[in-house]
Simulated scan of single mutants.
Amino acid sequence: MSRTKATFLPPVMEARRWLEGVDFSDRPLINVSQAAPVDPPPQQLRQAIADVALNVPDAHLYGPVLGLPALKSELATQWSAAYQGSITADQVGITSGCNQAFSATISMLCDQDDEVILPIPYYFNHRMWLDMQGVKTVPLQTGPDMLPDPAYAGELITPRTRAIALVTPNNPCGVEYPAELVRAFYNLCQDRGIALILDETYRDFDSRTGAPHDLFADPNWADTLIHLYSFSKAYRLTGHRVGAMVSSVARLEEAEKFLDTVAICPNQIGQYAALWGMQNLGAWVSGERDEILDRRAAIAEGFPTLEQQGWKLRGLGAYFAYLEHPFAMDSDDLARELVKQAGILVLPGTMFTPDGDADGKRQIRIAFANVDRAGITELFTRLAGLNL
């Protein structure tokens, strides 16, 4: 069997196929399936991109495999301040999106039949890459609050375990992992000699003020922590594919082998765009965060209507609301029915959980990054009106 046949079809693309042949003329589709902004970058950033394309000849050539030095330096400086720690530019690698950062991390850490622990529900692309690398996903069940237990995780570690991978704010659940929980997982990984992969793709939309954890304050953080980030969400650069991997110099040297083979270098123009955004769009990103937090509040305020019908809000934050439905059908069947009966496209919990997982059959993910307050009200109205 080929490596690609070892895993499932891309969930977002599979869900889009459910739209074929459905007429939405009398009721516009509410698409809450994908966690990515659909609007282009702000005008000033688009102008900066145009200026780079016209006036920076090197932006059209191969660049350093681990990224633009100025962007690496800027990220190291800003992250050191934000996390009250110490990060140097040579501990930063720029990647072609955060998915590639995760892929490079696993390729650098793992061999065939090694193991990585993922809290359930997991981000499906993480599971897909592990499948295709022949790395075993070890599921870590979460509690009613959708938070993983480090003590339980410790029981799952074997001689083949190479890492625990956390996503906070979480995809798909939205929950923000408390700083003390992140620290407990870090301590566990440090004690057991494995890596902690911490994906903070949605850090810019965390509802908390200040640093969400203190891991970078540990002088020895690079021995254990591998931090992943995406510029796509904060600056609407999804199509430019720019992410980051913050780790030890030795681990980045290993990751460089993977990156050079797969893409040679990250998108040069996209890197200049990310740099310009970091240096100039702080206030704009803050406004984007305020809007997302307002949509989060709108879901919390409107949810009692659904709760009266048996729905449960299992997680909420960043771009996501994670719901438990009250119907006598599996969530993948429900998701297809929602397209036809309510004009709503969501992803079922079965796309974020192992085959046969009972919880996944009861859950759906709402990605509300592109739905404003009025759209959220309409979403709840349609869900409340279901007759299944």
Results as ranks from 00 to 15, higher is better:
P10G: 06
P10H: 12
R16G: 14
S25T: 02
L29M: 04
D39V: 12
L45P: 00
V52I: 13
N55P: 01
N55A: 10
D58R: 13
A59E: 07
L68G: 02
G85W: 09
F102I: 00
I106P: 13
C110G: 14
D111C: 14
I117K: 05
T137Y: 08
V138H: 12
A153H: 01
E155M: 11
T161W: 07
I164G: 00
P169H: 05
E180H: 10
E180K: 05
C189Q: 03
C189E: 01
C189V: 00
G193L: 05
R203Q: 13
P219D: 08
S230C: 09
Y235P: 02
T238C: 11
R251P: 00
L252C: 04
E256H: 12
K257W: 10
L259S: 11
L259R: 05
Q268P: 00
Q279H: 07
S286Q: 15
R289C: 03
R289V: 00
L293A: 08
R295P: 01
R295M: 02
A298L: 11
A300W: 08
E307F: 14
K312C: 09
L313C: 06
A321L: 07
E324G: 08
H325L: 03
M329T: 14
V346C: 11
V346G: 03
G349L: 02
M351D: 11
V371T: 07
I376W: 04
T381R: 15
L383P: 02
